[in-house]
Design a protein around this nucleic acid. Structure first.
Lengths: 77, 77
DNA sequence: CACTTTTTGACCTGCAGAAGATCATTATTT
DNA sequence: AAATAATGATCTTCTGCAGGTCAAAAAGTG
């Protein structure tokens, strides 16, 4: 599965969704979906804006995990 | 800008669009758009299927290029 | 070479999901 | 406590991929 690390990247920088939305101009709903990993698609413009904003690569935001965690494990609150 | 390396990855393996479409089950139109970099969004399912198929990471397929090539340059044939 | 098969690009319609806006609830500030 | 900000949820609109088809181009075959 594809894992989105936006929440981690924001956490490391102590950023709020509203901060990123304001400073990137991206839609807050879009960021919320990426943050909570409920997004099922990504606009390349959005990915571009995030990479620019975080000065990072695509791989810092999206990671392919060939070994998804089995259900019910690693679910610490 | 976000660069898609699908054409390079396919070229290295001498794969045709129809090969990848057949073997991944992905829509040919979708692959054509990624191949020619006319796609403006990516379904995460599609990205997952491509990473699985090529045994690669997201960064092998998508790259963020903070220094896009100026118009009219590097446009060999 | 001509003929067949495969691949490709282009186009169309339907539809899934992001964009954009709004509202109620919850945090945070003052 | 009151005011402000942030968030989650929900709704409508709109963009562009999925899926299909068609004609042209490429590759394969006798």
């Amino acid at each position: 599965m594809i894992k989105c690390h936006l929440s981690r990247m924001m956490g490391e920088r102590r950023l709020k969704i509203s901060d990123v939305a304001r400073e990137t101009g991206l839609n807050r709903g879009t960021l919320t979906r990426l943050y909570h990993e409920t997004a099922e698609r990504v606009e390349l413009d959005v990915l571009d804006a995030l990479c620019t904003y975080f000065h990072c690569q695509v791989s810092d935001i999206f990671e392919f995990n060939p070994n998804p965690v089995p259900k019910g494990e690693n679910m610490a609150p």
